[in-house]
Design a protein around this nucleic acid. Structure first.
Lengths: 188, 188
DNA sequence: GTCTATATAATGATAGAC
DNA sequence: GTCTATCATTATATAGAC
């Protein structure tokens, strides 16, 4: 059972998570969060002293979600190739969001990786979750010494797909490239 | 010969181009431009009524630069494959900037493609320059009907490389992936 | 064409009542 | 824990002197 405070805090994080994704971190204001929730401004500052504290909470929340998603695949599929197919298929399943807002972790890193921003390492930790999990899967297939390189290659491919799909608001490239990636996994 | 006004206007555009790339469009203020140039605030508004007018000028400037770069390659190299190798090599040559700030056109599109932003189509026109030129090169090699798909594939690959290199501030992936792309071009 | 001074709005953050 | 009211800062943009 969650306390009232925990529920309020979670409502803020969920609203901020969506807003940061849809509008970007800098372009999201406290007022946006107030408008999206039923929480008044002063109360937000009761749970989060600064805006960047909200960002950290959002990133932690996303990390937890992705770890949970990946754990589920490990329970559901014993073959690491099947898990990698799940990962690639996630891109296709999520195409409508990718087209409209870009990759949630890629666009966040693009923004937070710019000059005079203290949060690049926070955003990078999201990528670490992906790379670490992918590396583990590749290690279980073959050539474990190439596992991390393969993980970086795969994530690079999916990020590139997201960029183009977002720029052109079009899913055709996703369809084509996802097929190529499934084939690439099968041929490992 | 350029007039004094043209030189002042150009100084603003050049400073804004760098700042938008290094800090992002939203995070760049008029004060930043004032600090980077010897031009006072009121004078900037003499040349550009709004901040978005500066953005349009910066995008036009980048479009002109890339078109000029590509034209140079067409003069320098008669084989379209050699021109494509130039394109891929540009990623490697520019790695220090890509690592620090990401792809200039990719990160701009990531930012301007978000919700409640009126400039996605402006930013997309930068990608059009790349796609159109790449498509022309692939058409001259073989299978002209696949030319645009190949252009999208190549740009997707290079954008993905830029994202990962930027996130990890590391050029190792660039080295590896650029080799793969050179090989891919040779085998077309 | 260039400048100073200022208007106006929005931002992140705080103080303190209930 | 929740709220209203407000502060201090910064932003874009404008007015008008030189």
């Amino acid at each position: 059972m969650s306390t009232k405070g925990e529920r309020t805090r979670n409502e803020i994080v969920e609203a901020a998570k969506t807003l940061f994704y849809h509008k970007g971190y800098t372009n999201t204001s406290f007022s946006d969060i107030v408008d999206k929730t039923n929480i008044r401004r002063g109360n937000i500052n009761h749970y989060f002293k600064t805006k960047s504290d909200i960002l950290e909470a959002v990133i932690s929340q996303r990390i937890a979600e992705y770890k949970s998603l990946f754990s589920g695949w490990e329970i559901q599929y014993s073959d690491p190739k099947d898990r990698l197919h799940c990962f690639v298929q996630m891109v296709a399943s999520n195409s409508s969001n990718l087209i409209r807002y870009g990759c949630p972790i890629g666009t966040l890193n693009a923004e937070l990786g710019k000059e005079a921003c203290d949060f690049q390492s926070n955003a990078r930790s999201l990528f670490d979750v992906f790379i670490n999990w992918l590396t583990q899967q590749f290690k279980q297939i073959n050539k474990p010494r190439q596992a991390q390189a393969r993980a970086l290659h795969l994530l690079s491919r999916t990020e590139g797909i997201s960029v183009i799909a977002h720029v052109y608001n079009n899913s055709d490239l996703i369809t084509v490239e996802v097929k190529l990636l499934h084939k690439w996994i099968d041929e490992l």
